[in-house]
Nucleic acid binder design. Structure first.
Length: 501
RNA sequence: GCGGGCAUAGUGUAGUCUGGUCAUCACAUAGGCUUGCCAAGCCUAUAACCCGGGUUCAAAUCCCGGUGCCCGCACCA
């Protein structure tokens, strides 16, 4: 489906809609409705269950969304958040200042103010690379963070966090003590981050307020031990830099062992690529052939990353591969910076007395983008029928309960619905329209099971006390005693765990 | 941010060029009849010209501003 069509469907069904819609909306902000809120929460829970399931030493924390200025100064976000730009007043093209001035200032323009850069531009009579005009100007730096007047006087500066990762770095010292004074130590955060994006676009793909799920794994720089043998034969779809430079868009399927051997990547890194891939393919149930690991080159990589593969998924609605997560080897950049910023030393002493500054492997996941991706990848048109093939454990409503004839079977159906709900199963009750219409509504909402109460259920014949259980994907129907329903449905709602060696 | 395009019920649309009927059609939604396990049929109801200003006897239609969306460029630390 095209983006517009998919968004119309999601809006109509109450999955999501623009924030402040009645005032005309607000760029880059969306609200989740009943279906969307549940789906998003289930995706977050699936992520948490899977990635915390990788180790007993990985923990979820829930830190504040506001960061004092000292934090973002140390992290580099205050100065590095945006590269200074030069814009052409004649043709309105914009360029990175360091690119335009690379011959004049080969060392770049870091640390210069807009006025200083403008002075260099004019002193050297720099012309627009696009149209040749000399009318270049340098706008004041635009920081992508939302600044806050913090405290009563408003003189203290604070910022909405631009990424959740910083919260984990801030927590490291405390978590070292709370934990067992051992590495590896994983700190996960699922929460909102905020960026004042210049051009929010593509619905959930460029938001000004968005939800990230990130796991920071702190490990001994001499090595992060992983049970690599358990994954060495797993094939991953990988698009590395040389292949990209040859103009290829499609990934190659290579084994984990080859990525380590010929590919020259660390075992711990590839091991986490495998589990990330399995999460997308086996938990979210995205088709494996839509997924690729996209290696970032030296120039594309964020400055703090030593190795960076984005995990990208091909979505039809946006006609291309979109980044839905990433695996970042950040080295000791973050603890070093916060050590300097806070005037502390985050070196830790391991058993045996060795002192190390931990390195960080970051697994990051965009929750909102994956809400969209589940819709894009898992909604299928089947003739007139629209079916959202969500895995049962992600479905906002697990089971729809219908009376075949509301007047005759309604009270029994309500009783059954209440009973299932009491077992912790999310239930939707519907007694309007024809039975086919109710099935269709549930298909569209991703509900995997429907239970229909009919004359047999309430009658005295052999079908007394049994109902029809209809499954979304195969449209198969089977007859079940009411008392066995919860036991039949509940196992399908359990979130998958990663296989541990 | 820049350039181009677009904006009509819940959804998709007709009408806009060429101003003039208290705005078309379908689906969806709600109620009724009928049917009774996969969006059937009939009847009824609800429901819209993005916001603000201007031109005009008259604006969904023309003009200006704003907001939002789409595409391209730039950006995505």
């Amino acid at each position: 489906m095209k983006s517009d069509e998919l968004f119309a469907l999601l809006r109509r069904r109450g999955v999501l809609w623009p924030t402040a819609e009645i005032y005309g909306g607000a760029q880059g902000l969306y609200d989740y409705g009943p279906l969307g809120a549940r789906l998003k929460r289930r995706i977050e829970e699936a992520w948490t269950t899977w990635f915390l399931g990788l180790s007993n030493d990985y923990y979820l924390i829930d830190p504040a969304e506001i960061l004092p200025e000292a934090v973002v100064r140390a992290s580099g976000h205050l100065e590095n958040f945006t590269d200074p730009e030069v814009v052409c007043d004649a043709c309105h093209s914009a360029f990175r200042a360091d690119t335009v001035l690379e011959k004049i200032r080969p060392d770049g323009v870091d640390g210069l103010t807009a006025a200083e850069i403008a002075a260099i531009v004019h002193a050297n009579r720099v012309h627009c690379p696009h149209c040749g005009s000399s009318e270049l100007s340098v706008p004041p730096p635009f920081n992508l963070m939302f600044g806050l007047d913090y405290g009563v006087t408003g003189h203290e500066r604070a910022y909405l966090r631009p990424e959740t990762a910083q919260s984990s770095y801030l927590a490291f010292a405390r978590m070292w003590d709370v934990g067992r004074h051992a590495l590896p130590l994983g700190i996960a955060v699922v929460g909102k981050a905020y960026r004042n994006e210049i051009a929010p676009r593509q619905v959930l793909f460029r938001l000004r307020a968005f939800t990230q799920a990130e796991l920071q794994i702190f490990f001994d720089p001499r090595g992060l031990p992983v049970p690599f043998d358990a994954v060495r034969e797993e094939r991953l779809p990988v698009l590395r830099v040389p292949r990209r430079e040859a103009g290829e868009e499609s990934p190659e399927w290579v084994t984990a062992a080859e990525l380590v051997g010929k590919g020259n990547l660390p075992e711990f890194y590839v091991y986490h690529m495998v589990h990330t891939f399995r999460f997308f393919r086996d938990v979210l149930r995205y088709p494996g052939d839509r997924i690729r690991f996209f290696e970032k080159s030296d120039t594309e990589r964020a400055f703090y990353n030593r190795i960076q593969f984005d995990i990208e998924v091909h979505v039809e609605s946006l006609a291309g591969y979109k980044e839905l997560g990433a695996v970042h080897y950040r080295g000791d950049y973050d603890l070093t910076r916060h050590g300097q910023g806070a005037g502390k030393d985050f070196t830790v002493t391991l058993t045996g007395g060795t002192r190390v500054l931990p390195h960080v492997l970051e697994l990051t996941f965009g929750v909102d983008r994956n809400v969209w991706a589940t819709a894009d990848l898992l909604i299928a048109k089947d003739g007139e029928r629209t079916v959202w093939r969500l895995p049962p454990y992600l479905a906002p409503v697990a089971v729809g309960v219908f009376p075949l004839i509301p007047k005759e079977h309604g009270s029994e159906a309500v009783r059954i619905a209440n009973d299932l709900a009491a077992h912790g199963i999310p239930v939707g009750y519907d007694d309007t329209g024809t039975i086919g219409k109710r099935y269709a509504r549930m298909d569209e909402a991703g509900t995997p099971f429907c239970v229909t109460v009919d004359g047999g259920t309430v009658g005295t014949g052999p079908e007394h006390g049994t109902v029809t259980l209809r499954e979304r994907d195969g449209r198969t129907q089977s007859r079940w005693p009411v008392g066995e329903l919860a036991g039949r449905i509940a196992p399908a709602l359990l979130l998958p765990w990663p296989a541990r060696a």
